[in-house]
Design a protein around this nucleic acid. Structure first.
Lengths: 347, 347
DNA sequence: GCTTATAATGGGAGCGTTCCCAATTCTTTC
DNA sequence: GAAAGAATTGGGAACGCTCCCATTATAAGC
């Protein structure tokens, strides 16, 4: 029974070299003769050898694993395709750079243990924190433990943190300006949760737009949702008595809910109430009517976030980075722009 | 600078015991005096000690990490809430049992490397394979390498494999029988991809139902989709000339597409064409009209799958397990059952 | 051709745990 | 109160790799 685990030593033996040389080949050390490298490689290939991850991690102090932490405070996000897209981006970057992804959904009850594990068990070389609340405990923890990390979404307070984000504020402002330009007079908004930076920034953008046009923001036209369809629905109902003629909704999922409420109230979209969403989720193009929305590159954010984290890991004392990804206002039917243009052309 | 990493030895020193005893406490070995255990525990707590994962993994040969492998052949699944729910279930089980989750989205190009890594780098103690194609290479690999694994969804060929699934066939049959009982004469189906066991089984269930009622299946009323909204849409268009009066769609996401096609064709649901979906995704209850569908417990499947895998890991030579989770036909408006009942009551 | 620099290689010493066996300390029993 | 057994504890030897330094082979320079 020679079914011992395959180790670097066996490879060394078969290739006629030492442990060290095999290790060098594995780690792409340039100080190996080309012929030797080739020989070692082919032995590894032949035996289907894969170096033991735990041993490498222990010896080198690096695991080549990135942690993805998703605080589950806002479970709503998990019921739409936001996270799948983000995860795909991260995973693609990991595959490309020979990293793996560890996933932690931080449910509140387990959070303390989880956090400890993340920061001090040495399981991961760094972590990506997605859509954290503004006062997230995980951020605090990785910060004090000096674990490399990047946020998906900027941080409202700390300025020395690396993050990947879109310009929520400016893109929201532009979306609202689009509505104003189309002639709507009472533009309302359903914001995201205001304990998340994205929610906060998009609301600020909404206000910026009004101010830019000299319009005084009416607090009755502003309501807070939680990114879920249900909240879009109920919040829209609550807003209806204020008779808005247009509404900027901080996520497509909520926009769907809002449209459902409008439909039930007998309002036509965009004729009675125009609507603009945010995200450009796959379903936005297929809703009835198709939703005008702000497209943000979620997959790309995950990809870039992971790559940025890898850079942070390899450079010690790397300076914090801020990556802002571009957005795009996708004009479909729900904002009324098309209808109006057609009318104008007919006239 | 005594900023050396905190190890078991420091804990031992401060608690006045040996390495071994600390290790015993960490691993809940009963052979430790209660008082000693207490003392060690409090020192660990005070210093916020977390044993090094790589070292444990190396020494014990166990990582307490489960791998979740999602072959990305069917990317469609990733754009609806199926995976988020599944992942949440798995993650919840892991949290509860002190495991972590490693995530691999197996993109075809990287698959070989990824597979090797999964099976022979010792990163994980076992793997969960979700929605694999029927001839998946990953399954082959974990099988020959004797890595414990469970499938989400049964395997069409191997019978000695542990899996968690719902009874796709029977539940699909019941859904179709429901339509037949309501009096529909030309019941069509949009199946899932036929290289996935779920797609296969649900189609078989459809045929079972027809046969049970002595109806000869009309191949023109059967069309294959790929679980995506777009495929639901185009497949429905293709089916329309056959003039079905009801349709069983193998996923809610496809059902959404089918409804869009029907709407565009001027068909009323359920009056002109009744429709039944599968999954009971969150959006099914809110579609227009609300979708009658087969509810399957996705979150629970993930949870149970993870727990089952943990059992497999701890018992050597465990016998394969087959877990079948219950489904439920959720009757809403799209199948016409309510409308009919109301009509009947009025009469 | 001999010295010196340089490219390749080898081997010892960890990395932080667990596991096993031996040693010690309590208990129990007669 | 001594012997035997059980409960508790300690320490050496892995686990499979990387890292550093020493050594050997090769190339370059005069």
């Amino acid at each position: 029974m020679t079914s011992d685990r395959l180790t670097i030593i066996e490879i060394a033996k078969q290739a006629g070299v030492s442990r060290s040389t095999v290790s060098r080949v594995i780690n792409d050390d340039p100080n190996v003769h080309a012929a030797t490298r080739q020989r070692v490689r082919s032995v590894m290939q032949k035996l289907n050898f894969q170096p033991n991850a735990a041993a490498r991690g222990l010896a080198a102090g690096k695991t080549r694993i990135l942690g993805l932490v998703i605080p589950m405070g806002v479970a709503a996000l998990f019921s739409d395709p936001y996270f799948p897209q983000l995860i795909q981006g991260i995973s693609a970057a990991c595959n490309q750079h020979d990293y793996s992804t560890m996933l932690w959904l931080a449910e509140p009850e387990y959070e303390r243990r989880t956090i400890q594990q993340i920061v001090s068990a040495g399981m991961v070389d760094g972590v990506i924190i997605a859509s954290a609340l503004t006062d997230d405990a995980v951020i605090e923890a990785v910060r004090t433990h000096k674990v490399p990390f990047v946020l998906i979404g900027r941080h409202p307070v700390y300025v020395d943190i690396t993050y990947v984000d879109v310009d929520n504020r400016v893109s929201a402002r532009d979306a609202v300006l689009h509505l104003i330009r189309l002639g709507y007079k009472r533009v309302a908004t359903i914001s995201g949760p205001l304990n998340m930076i994205g929610g906060l920034d998009r609301l600020a953008g909404y206000k910026d737009a009004l101010k830019a046009r000299g319009i005084v923001a009416d607090p009755n036209l502003i309501a807070e949702g939680d990114f879920s369809e249900a909240s879009g629905y109920s919040t829209m109902q609550q807003l209806l008595p204020q008779e808005p003629d247009a509404i900027f909704v901080a996520s497509d999922t909520m926009a769907l809910g809002a449209m459902r409420a409008l439909r039930e109230a007998g309002k036509r979209i965009p004729d009675d109430v125009a609507i603009v969403g945010y995200d450009d989720m796959p379903f936005a193009a297929r809703s009835d009517p198709p939703l005008t929305t702000v497209r943000q590159p979620i997959h790309r954010a995950g990809f870039v976030g992971a790559e940025t984290l890898m850079e942070l890991i390899s450079e010690q004392d790397a300076a914090p980075r801020r990556v802002i990804l571009p957005t795009e206002l996708v004009i479909r039917d729900s904002c009324g722009a098309r209808v109006m243009r057609e009318k104008k052309m007919r006239a």
